[in-house]
Design a protein around this nucleic acid. Structure first.
Lengths: 117, 117
DNA sequence: TATAGTGCGTTCAATTACTGAACGCGTTAT
DNA sequence: ATAACGCGTTCAGTAATTGAACGCACTATA
């Protein structure tokens, strides 16, 4: 995929997940996104590098050292921007898929007619 | 992509294209599918290997040597099977996308409300 | 207190996926 | 003749992705 929006989409998904739950580990994220741990780490680093998220140590009520990934103000702003951007892209994909399904349906019907003869 | 259905989808698309126009060259196919020539060639070879298509020399009315890629009876059968299979997959994707769009829309609206305050 | 176990972020060699320039060949145009 | 063209084919190079392994800090167990 040399499509730049492919990376961007992972970034948006991570931002959305972390915004709803900053406690997610990189392994949680890779499960949720169905991508490898390495790729998730690569993505997190990019978001840190861009200043969209920050990594923060904290101790929870069981005195366990852990991390939270918090969206920065810039990250929140970018998340909004990317949300609108992908909304448009997704609507286009939706229409494309609708047409593709229509084509497949038509063909499937033709095939079953052919079998009946 | 270790997803086996990714290959399969290319195969189905090639079968559909060739069924509608056996005169398409590998370059035509790579344009239509927006994939590289090398990948198209790899795909064609796989379909030949499986016996789904056959490659046939012919001479058109201008005495030009050329190839046609014809679907075999097995290829026609497989194309039908794969069409039904992907119809189901695509419908699922469609629903998934619908939900994703709904989520994005809701979020975009929340963001614009936040901006107004 | 010692020690094993757990979960975390991180790394990176290996694998897989993909590209597209280049080639040989036969046809077509000059 | 000979250049130009389009075809399938090849393959070295690059991009993308994986996941086992590592060190570290905390937790549970003896």
């Amino acid at each position: 995929m040399s499509d730049p929006s492919a990376h961007e989409e992972s970034h948006l998904k991570v931002l959305r997940l972390l915004d709803s739950n900053p406690l997610m580990s990189q392994r949680d994220l890779s499960d949720a996104l169905a991508i490898s741990l390495g790729k998730t780490n690569y993505c997190i680093k990019a978001l840190l590098d861009k200043g969209f998220i920050k990594m923060q140590n904290f101790r929870n009520n069981k005195n366990k050292l852990a991390y939270v990934y918090l969206l920065t103000p810039l990250g929140i702003e970018q998340k909004s921007r990317m949300t609108v951007e992908f909304l448009q892209i997704k609507v286009q994909e939706y229409e494309h898929l609708r047409l593709e399904i229509a084509g497949l349906k038509q063909e499937a019907e033709q095939n079953s007619l052919r079998e009946q003869q």
